[in-house]
């Protein structure tokens, strides 16, 4: 692959991927607990007999 700078594409994609992933993990684990709990209970809101 001597031509056209194609080899840069895999490199770009790796850098993108890792930044994306690390950022996502950092943010997700900084979420507060109470909010997470509220979110996971959403499907049960408004039930006539909510979680026993």
């Amino acid at each position: 692959m001597i031509s056209s700078g194609i080899e840069i594409y895999p490199l770009i994609s790796f850098i993108l991927f890792f930044t994306f992933f690390i950022l996502m993990l950092v943010f997700v684990f900084r979420q507060d607990k109470k909010h997470i709990q509220e979110m996971s209970n959403l499907p049960f809101e408004g039930d006539k007999n909510p979680l026993q």
């Binding site: 997700v28 979420q31 997470i36 709990q37 996971s40 979680l51």
Partner: peptide, 9 residues
């Protein structure tokens, strides 16, 4: 299952 998802995170 009548229980919230194991881990919302």
């Amino acid at each position: 299952a009548n229980r919230p998802v194991f881990s919302y995170r």
